[in-house]
Nucleic acid binder design. Structure first.
Lengths: 374, 374
DNA sequence: CTGAAAGCGCTAACAA
DNA sequence: TTGTTAGCGCTTTCAG
């Protein structure tokens, strides 16, 4: 192992100088610069991760993790758990992670969230957020609460000042959803799946299970405008047209407004009545999975089996449906990795100046069937 | 972050004493011991990973990775690549990894392997091996080559001496296959899949694709005694009997000896002729995948589609078959993780005394279909 | 049984 | 432009 000290000795300069050259900070005489660089090259210098990490302790790094309290967003439960585990790990590197969670359906949690944010933000050096327009939501919340003080603060939260007093945006890593439009902060990376690809895989599965003759009902638990499910459906359609000529889409059920969410299953049953040849259902985002049981029942009354494809693996009930073949397969997107890697990437950026390349770290799209579970 | 120094100051002792208590090395007065332990507890002491890693630099850790040169064992290519990547990473922690690879079909590589082993083994502090009886194979090789000197050395290779001069076995982490019978070395962990579970998943897939009515031909590219495929087949059968009453196994093709390997595809075709209702083939270990094309052709002559399940993802040709639906699905076992984690576990054991718990780190069993690839 | 001290590799503040 | 130095947290050796 060749260290900075070795190079310094061989070059007849101090360790500080070598450090400056290697990191391009501060001015160094061109000759020594060249000497040191070539020396580093030929001696095969590799920085010591342990040394760097130890030195980074002095930075007293604090990161903020913004996420959903998992009560009404079960998908985010494993994300949050994994983030907490990673936080414990980072603690061993002298890093503190502050968790800011809220539940969109619960104004109290939002209020607490805002209070905590107001208290803690100044010395948080970087953020991890679930690619939604969190700041926009907060602004909306501030308006709705007539909380002008908070409304004004929001922009500051993501900013810090550099040595010369200029404001600079703090680094932010997105997870789960990549929202490029929220460009008001310094997005350095994204950890999440390729939703279109997810839809293609769903189509492939449905095709194989139906012998290439799938007649498909598509169901989404949203108003049809949510990025994740529209992208999945796009992928599904494209794959179908490209490679599965025997398949057709028979219907598309979604909830035009929030109230209608409870009617989704009814609407889906009606579609099945209208199209008796439907033999596959694609549920493009997590929701109330009791729909699977209802549709499967309808199919069995006809003496058929239904291919049901879902996404993610959110609770024990869904797992049981997989085991019972009520759900044929579910496509997952490594939620644990989304929580863990987003924090890790942020840490490495702040501690060592390592910016992720490429910025999009794609999570695997895993196919799970009943037999995958234990 | 509370450090050993903080505890030492509060307890009015030196850092050395705290260290001794925390690691149970050396004798410490019972009172101070208690004091320090309670102090550590209440102050919430967590050891700093960076500090430990930096201090571990002094150990000059050298690890040995034993594996197959990937020429005739394509499964091991990604394993080896991942191990090399991990080795680069560990290099940044002051660790050197020495690679010892050989090709069982090539005596020259074996000879080189042995020479390197003889030269390097004394200061290698731990090993990573592909759970096969590598030492047994080497003994066999030594006998066959009349290389007595080497034959005698073999046992020493995995041993070192402790302070008092006693021989102790060096820690060894297995990957891919867990061979508990090779108990002559100190196996501290294993990274690999659950082969029985792999078979269960294969059965579940075949069932879903055949509407629960699969008539299955099982093919293995070995003499029927290799652990990985026999376990997979066991899992397949068990799952079938337990949960898929409509399925049946129609035939079982394997190669009684090495010569017969080239006849496997012929034998399989014959089985398909004998049982015209065969609609699924399970190829229980990697081999010559041209068999898939031949059997698929036979099926299409009958106007049928065949469900073909394979294991692992070894080359471009197999990938193309997946895309073309010649292979319906393949079940993978995270080869990259096997290479990377086995080294990481070994490092943490030697550097920090962290022994893996549980000893078996199970890799995921991933289902890949054509649409999973790009 | 305990303390003192050096050192692992790197960084950053300060002095020259 | 460069050198010096202290320090990040932990381990280990050497004295006592």
């Amino acid at each position: 192992m060749v260290s900075i000290k070795d190079i310094a000795e061989k070059a007849g300069v101090s360790r500080g100088t070598v450090d400056r050259v290697l990191h391009g900070r501060g001015r160094v005489a061109p000759d020594t610069q060249k000497l040191i660089l070539s020396l580093a090259e030929e001696m095969g210098y590799e920085p010591s991760a342990a040394g760097m990490a130890l030195a980074a302790h002095k930075k007293k790094i604090r990161l903020g993790f913004i996420g959903f309290a998992a009560v009404n967003a079960p998908f985010f439960y494993p994300v949050l758990e994994a983030a907490k585990k990673k936080a414990k790990e980072l603690e061993q590197y002298g890093v503190e992670v502050v968790f800011f969670t809220f539940d969109l359906d619960n104004r109290d949690t939002l209020k607490l969230f805002v209070q905590k944010l107001l208290k803690e933000w100044p010395d948080i050096q970087g953020w991890t957020v679930p690619g939604l327009d969190v700041l926009g939501m907060l602004k909306y919340f501030a308006d709705a609460s007539h909380d002008e003080a908070f409304g004004k603060k929001i922009d500051e939260i993501i900013q810090s000042r550099d040595a010369s007093g200029n404001t600079i945006s703090k680094p932010v890593v997105y997870y789960n959803i990549d929202e490029e439009s929220t460009s008001y902060w310094n997005r350095i990376g994204f950890v999440g799946c390729d939703y279109e690809h997810s839809g293609r895989i769903a189509c492939g599965l449905a095709s194989k299970v139906t012998g290439g003759q799938g007649k498909v009902l598509i169901v989404t638990y949203d108003d049809g405008s949510v990025a994740s499910s529209t992208l999945r459906i796009k992928g599904f359609r494209e794959e179908m047209e490209l490679r599965h000529p025997g398949m057709e889409i028979r219907g598309y059920v979604f909830a035009p407004d929030l109230q209608a969410l409870i009617d989704v299953a009814d609407m889906a049953e009606k579609e099945m009545d209208r199209h008796p040849d439907i033999n596959a259902v694609y549920i493009a985002n997590p929701g109330n999975y009791s729909i699977c049981e209802r549709l499967q029942k309808k199919a069995s009354e006809r003496g058929q089996r239904l291919c049901v494809i879902t996404n993610d693996l959110v609770d024990e009930r869904q797992k049981q449906m997989l085991r019972d073949e009520v759900i044929t397969a579910t496509i997952c997107q490594e939620p644990e990795r989304q929580g863990a890697r987003s924090l890790q990437i942020l840490y490495e950026a702040i501690a060592f100046g390592n910016y992720p390349e490429p910025a999009w770290e794609k999570t695997k799209l895993e196919i799970l069937i009943g037999e995958s579970l234990l």
